[in-house]
Design a protein around this nucleic acid. Sequence first.
DNA 1: TCTGGGGTCCTAGGACCC
DNA 2: TCTGGGGTCCTAGGACCC
Length: 417
Amino acid sequence: MSAFPRTIFHVDMDAFFVSVEELFDSSLKGKAVVVGGQRGERGVVAAASYEARKFGVHSAMPLRTAEKLCPHAIFVNGHRERYIEYSQAVHRILTSFSPAVEMASIDEAYIDMTGTERLHGPPLRAADALHGRIKSETKLNCSIGIGGSRLMAKISSAKAKPHGLLWAIAGHEKTFLAPLDVRDIPGVGKVTEKNLQNFGIRYIGDFSRYDEAFLEEHFGKWGLALAGKSRGEDAGGWFDSEVGADSEPKSISHEHTYNQDTADVAKIEATLMRLSEMVGRRLREADLSARTIQLKLRYKDFTTITRAQTLPAATQLDTEIFEQIRRLFHKNWRKFSEVRLLGVQAAAFDEDNAQADLLDQGRRQRWRNAMLAVDRMRDKFGESSVSLAAGIKGGFRERTHENPVELRSTFGDKDKK
DNA sequence: TCTGGGGTCCTAGGACCC
DNA sequence: TCTGGGGTCCTAGGACCC
């Protein structure tokens, strides 16, 4: 929370994924482009070019719907590595303007420009310079919203799109917000919109017709928060927090949707093993251990369940994760029902790994070292080159901590080194 | 319209403890 | 012997965001 006025920028890249793809293939420029997958694939639109948007295509829309709306669109697979690289380039530019920078996602950031006037001039001039630097160094366009809080900056940048600049001047928040749609408030989606509509609330200004007690009664804590946001206030909320305070991750997960639904147990277990390995690897990279392991299971008809298990001790090992996941799966799977999606999540991270008893720690450390060696091999020879034996056999002969990993390689001599 | 993958936060109920 | 209240942990589901 802040006692004095701040100047916050929200920088939002324009059609980010599409624009990056255009840099790698200039023939895409000016065309209707859909990033996210190929025609006929199971999936959704990750990003659409402005040309494709004219036909009603937007992100999160099923690819097949996009195809119908815009038959001549060019479908492109996403390249996450490229976007991360460009995201980092933008981040570097932002930090040269102010030390208080926070990437809110791969394509947007908050930057606290309070007190930078001597260096960068007043907000509009600073924003113009920032936009220019990003354009000249990355060839990418962005929009910038300026406000006295993250909330106002975020709403402004959305209204500035594409390729624009908008400053919601402090003190005039209510007037600025009143004519906007309730959907323009971050956190208000389809469901809340519908619920608000039942009370005749369509525009942000409509909130002023109700008192806070009424909104709290019908929408709980969220109703109270909404009332504040409608006036541009966000006291205590995330949007009011300090810019640049890194927060630790709360969960790590991987999931997979089959192109063809399946009830083949061997196939399902192989997928669960792979997902467990991916999660385990990320945990080790972040040096985190998780106490709660969660399975996600989606059937052919899209009904979805999650089942979690909290362990007595935290883990970061593929085998332990897989063991839990496998148990949860067999305990909860409606036998022979076709599965559409499987997911593995690790959560409830142990803050203090040093707590475990020393003997156990020694064993765990040896395991960890062995797993890090596996990770390095996978880096060298590919993800599929090393599998845990248990995963291949689908059973658990090996359960002691003394003989941690059986390595198996699909290569001949290459991995001898 | 036939619905990805990676996250966050909130709610609500039950278990368990004091 | 009909039954309180608060706190914490755990689980399941859902809204929402990019």
